[in-house]
Design a protein around this nucleic acid. Sequence first.
DNA 1: TGGCGGCGATCGAACGATCGTTAGGGAGGG
DNA 2: CCCTCCCTAACGATCGTTCGATCGCCGCCA
Lengths: 204, 204
Amino acid sequence: MENLARKDPAPNSVRVGQVLETATRLFTERGYEAASIRDLAAELAIRPSSLYHHFPGKQNILFTICFGMQRDFNAEVMPHLAAGRTPEEAIRGTIRQHILFSQRRKGEVLVNIRERRSLPPKLLARVNELRRQYRDAVADVIADGHRQGVFRLTQPKLAAMAILDMANGQALWFKPRDRRDLDRLADSYAQAAVVLLGGWVPVP
Amino acid sequence: MENLARKDPAPNSVRVGQVLETATRLFTERGYEAASIRDLAAELAIRPSSLYHHFPGKQNILFTICFGMQRDFNAEVMPHLAAGRTPEEAIRGTIRQHILFSQRRKGEVLVNIRERRSLPPKLLARVNELRRQYRDAVADVIADGHRQGVFRLTQPKLAAMAILDMANGQALWFKPRDRRDLDRLADSYAQAAVVLLGGWVPVP
DNA sequence: TGGCGGCGATCGAACGATCGTTAGGGAGGG
DNA sequence: CCCTCCCTAACGATCGTTCGATCGCCGCCA
């Protein structure tokens, strides 16, 4: 009587998790369009048709990865936007958590960044809506800091995009040697974001 | 006797230019894998087989777009790394030009960023080599600034990546209303890069 | 307790569509 | 006459997906 909410996608079985894991790896390695259902089935040592018992189709697998990742991301990172007392502390904690999450679940993050566009418009919109919520929340905190005089800049939304592009970019190339290395990157980027917001004087 | 250097790809005819233009647009709209040779031919109002008179194959069209774009980019942007007297001026001019180029030839830039990975390893390596040259040159100037004490940071290469991720990101979302708008963004980002490099104090 | 029905999970086989590419021929201008 | 450019036609491969049968486990009921 507990897990009856959804019927079609993801009956939370072990296999569903295996499919999502393997699909995430395949999609990052070859791209969504280039990775075929048959490739995915072969890696799972089952027949292609068996996949359709767990998922209604290929697009739904991609959606489950992207939406699930973004949902978890928002739930984990966005609280840091309100937790800190000052806007500076809020941004610092958010960017730090943003990077830690991105590295911890790098596969899903990469799929979401690079393959999201292959979703049909309706499903894509649902993922983008979550991303917009996060982006707007960051921009709001930046605007707060601007009103309080801590941040010096002209366009809060532009500053938010610049910082988020920076924070997203590292997922594509950074490979931490150990936990210390990762912590250093997270702190560095958090610091960079604050410095950038504090010293970004307007251009005449 | 002038244009005999290359025989297979791009005999510099009008059609070749049309193909590259249309392919760039199609690849940005649908992605390389999802855009078919038949789609491309249909938009050009010719038959699919006719394309093979101008290009040896689909991958070569993608390569021509990516490599040509990155070659022009390096030729246009990299001189700014040596032009300025101070590292600060060099970075400022480079980032500014980086953004102006990205917006002027946004289609090719987007294809290079998002679809490059679909190239076979050998062709991909040739494009990545050009990108590596640019990235290393930026990192060298940052390291110079660090030695001179103008930039305060721990890892020049990490700082270079952060700045370049920021500069590359805008191509995905920024749509300038006019030339003034574009100039403002370019100057803002150039300023942001300098501020970031100057104030990026090391994390203990 | 032992047979049995039901059901989740997987299977083999195939569908129609679309893919990149090739072969070979024809029109037209230098 | 040859070379550039485009055509029609088709090749073999691979794509996502569907259909219907089968396997094995689990609980119910005689």
